[in-house]
Nucleic acid binder design. Structure first.
Lengths: 233, 233
DNA sequence: AAGAAGTGGTGATGGAGATCACACATTGCT
DNA sequence: AGCAATGTGTGATCTCCATCACCACTTCTT
């Protein structure tokens, strides 16, 4: 499905010191110009409203992207995995960062100054195309996010969507119906735009309906279809 | 504010047959490769879920971008003005169109096949950069949309946001506190994620509070600050 | 002129979920 | 251990808005 125009995109990157997981031109450019640093948990790469300094490339770890309302409520846009490019939109359009990026765990992040990014893009169309692909994916995922959030009024539907989405990402390993829950109920609430208590109640309900099983931070979804039925509703 | 990296962006384009309102390289490329057509009101340029055929450039008129939920409810992402580039994310990432584009009035639209777009991007970094700028703006505006919609639960706050936003766009002419209302209540509801009746009631309330005045399709906002106070709430 | 189709006002009702207020569990720190 | 900090479960209440149900008004169509 969905013909891939260029390959090499979004493959979980091995945390080597080179950028060999990217297209040749891109890798070469990045090796020369990018600066790689290790951050602890909770480090803020950039904050909503700041003037753009450059773009960040996640090499290892996970980064939380969120936006904030005036009254302090938070919405988590997504969790960025290795291979993700952060802050491009701000750099390219010259507007301030539209979200806040914060590490969720110790992470290795490469940085590319905004002047360097623009220069490289002008110089190599291939490089520019690569950048555009990344931001296109961000755009698409944001569109899906908006659709899921607004067009499904029941909170249970949103949670079901989130869980199924996670299941797809974690094609990991032998047990495809199992995954680790790395977020708190509070954070899940911030992802689906509802309160912490509602998330608690929803999980309780799901367990009662045998839609999920939970032991510690491990979640098992014995019957994926049942969950998906909640969505069409 | 917000340093503009390249100029020439988003200036309302005069509907000439050339692309002289764009950067030279872009204009030249488009003049050779793009196909310009006139569409009536209600024409669908592309629909959510279709495989990408190419990108559309709005030369004249207005185009509604919307997404749809399974149960038929609609959310209007935004109304695209002349100068806007539509469908880039889909073409570049190779995914299906993530929204539906429909003309709101008779419009003149240029079309560029997806292979041509990619070729031009690879060839000219400057062209690619121009494309990326457009999609970056789309991304930013979508982020703002999502924030406004989710993080303000009261519908009145959302409507106030929408009205103030429109006021900013219509820096038009002598009377900055006045504008034409080109959408129905139904459509406004689809922009702020609420029902038609709620929009009606909100407008009635706003009039009662002297926040807006309305004669025909013309809206006057005598006291912009009062409206903005609804937002922080 | 007379429908027909689209739009706009407004009441009544119900339900989903936010919020407040706790008690309990889990983790980490010294 | 033992205490603090953080995360989780659950009841009671209350508010906002979707929904249903009509009526009025305006364009179009024929």
């Amino acid at each position: 499905m969905a013909t891939q125009v260029v390959n090499h995109v979004q493959k979980p990157a091995p945390a080597d010191k080179t950028f060999s997981d990217f297209p040749p031109i891109v890798a070469e450019a990045l090796e020369q110009e990018a600066l790689t640093t290790t951050y602890p948990t909770g480090a803020v790469l950039f904050a909503e409203g700041q003037a753009p300094r450059g773009v960040f490339i996640v090499r290892r770890g996970r980064v939380k992207l969120s936006i904030c309302s005036s009254d302090g409520r938070t919405l988590i846009l997504r969790i960025a995995d290795p291979g993700c490019l952060l802050g491009v939109a701000a750099v390219v359009s010259g507007r301030n960062y539209e979200a806040t990026a914060e590490t969720q765990e110790p992470s290795e992040i490469s940085f590319l100054r905004h002047t360097d990014l623009l220069r490289l893009m002008r110089l190599h169309g291939e490089f520019a195309l690569w950048v555009t692909q990344h931001i296109s994916q961000d755009y698409a995922s944001t569109c899906r996010e908006i659709r899921d959030l607004i067009l499904s009024d029941s909170a249970s539907e949103k949670l079901a969507r989130l869980l199924v989405g996670w299941l797809d990402q974690n094609t990991s390993a032998r047990n495809p119906s199992q995954m680790k829950l790395a977020l708190t109920h509070e954070e899940i609430g911030q992802m689906i735009g509802s309160s912490r208590e509602t998330v608690s109640r929803l999980f309780a309900g799901f367990k009662k309906q045998r839609l999920i099983q939970q032991t510690g931070s491990t979640i098992v979804i014995p019957n994926r279809l049942a969950l998906e039925n909640l969505i069409t509703a």
